[in-house]
């Protein structure tokens, strides 16, 4: 691990200002992904800003009936919150489908959103990777690509976003609240938060230099049957091959987002309106522009079948 300096931030705005003025600085909260990557020298921050002392660990009701989840709320606490379990079950389910008990105790809400891909070529510093070393190429294209993305890919990158939580937050229409180095705050719809890889796969979100996530806000509950179904190579503690987050209403309408298929949680508004016509119709829209490799082509059918199982379960 490369050497670094360290400070404990006193306020969100101070943290953002410090991150903007210090070249090579990174925020650290749970650290479960960042330290893993620092050990491998994939991440090499020269300065760490510890944000754990900031009072961003509350889950509070918003005036319009939603929930404001502090950036530092641990995954375990978010999944176990009584309001989340009752009104946003898809979020509890997604969190509980991810990682292990130990990791969920440490990992934070904002850190979960910002975790990096688990593409094996991103992790292998002997291989080219445009995300790790811009311009070096992509070893996953033409490599072992069973885990990789099938939609929204580019010639530069076919990595997936590994988060389960973010897929549920996408289907719940969450917004990301931030503070910028000048102290100004803004809210970013999750759909506008994540970028597709394009020519710059190393730039993963629309956050600006130094900008700090302070919370994630959920709109008021939409009810319905909420399901998160994750398909993976072992029954627990593995990343998704395909996952489906769905909210289905009594009248048959609903929303669907998918994980494990793209560089960000995957949602297509036009696909939601196909839900009454079944999984095949939804998947045809959702994965219309799929560009698969020989090894991950199975994900298209797997996505359709996983969604079919989810919609059948929602009907009861």
């Amino acid at each position: 691990m490369k050497s670094f300096t360290y400070e404990r931030a006193q306020s969100p705005a101070d943290a953002a200002a410090a991150a903007a003025r210090t070249e090579g600085a990174k925020f650290i909260a749970g650290g479960t992904n960042l330290l893993d990557l620092m050990k491998l020298e994939i991440e090499t921050p020269t300065h760490l800003i510890d944000v754990n002392a900031l009072a961003l660990d509350k889950i509070e009701a918003t005036p319009d009936g939603g929930l404001r989840i502090g950036a530092l709320v641990r995954n375990t606490d978010l999944a176990a919150d009584a309001r989340v379990r009752r009104d946003y079950a898809v979020l509890s389910r997604a969190l509980l489908a991810g990682a292990s008990g130990q990791l969920r105790n440490k990992a934070t809400t904002a850190g979960n959103l910002l975790q990096r891909t688990r593409c094996p070529y991103f992790y292998d510093t002997n291989q080219p990777c445009n995300k790790r070393l811009p311009g070096s190429g992509c070893a996953a294209i033409g490599g072992f690509s069973r885990q990789h993305a099938i939609v929204g890919t580019s010639k530069a990158c076919i990595a997936t976003h590994p988060s389960d939580m973010a897929v549920a937050m996408r289907v719940l229409d969450a917004t990301v609240d931030t503070v910028q180095p000048d102290g100004k705050t803004r809210s970013i719809a999750l759909d506008d938060f994540y970028r597709l890889p394009g020519e710059t796969p190393h730039i993963e979100t629309t956050l600006t230099k130094g900008e700090l996530i302070t919370a994630v806000t959920l709109p008021k509950p939409v009810g319905g049957t909420q399901i998160y179904r994750k398909v993976r190579d072992r029954a627990s503690y593995a990343f998704a091959l395909v996952s489906v987050a769905a909210i289905v209403q009594r009248d048959g309408s609903g929303r669907v987002a998918m994980g494990g298929v793209a560089h960000r949680p995957w949602h297509v508004a036009a696909a939601d309106s196909e839900i009454p016509r079944g999984a095949r119709a939804v998947t045809a829209r959702l994965l219309a522009d799929a560009a698969t490799t020989h090894e991950n082509a199975f994900k298209v059918k797997l996505a359709e079948r996983t969604l079919a199982a989810v919609l059948a379960k929602a009907k009861g």
Binding site: G31, T32, T76, N105
Partner: peptide, 13 residues
């Protein structure tokens, strides 16, 4: 009182 992976956290934290 909470279980964590001690390898993935800095002692100073």
């Amino acid at each position: 009182g909470r279980r964590i992976n001690s390898c993935l956290t800095l002692a100073v934290m």
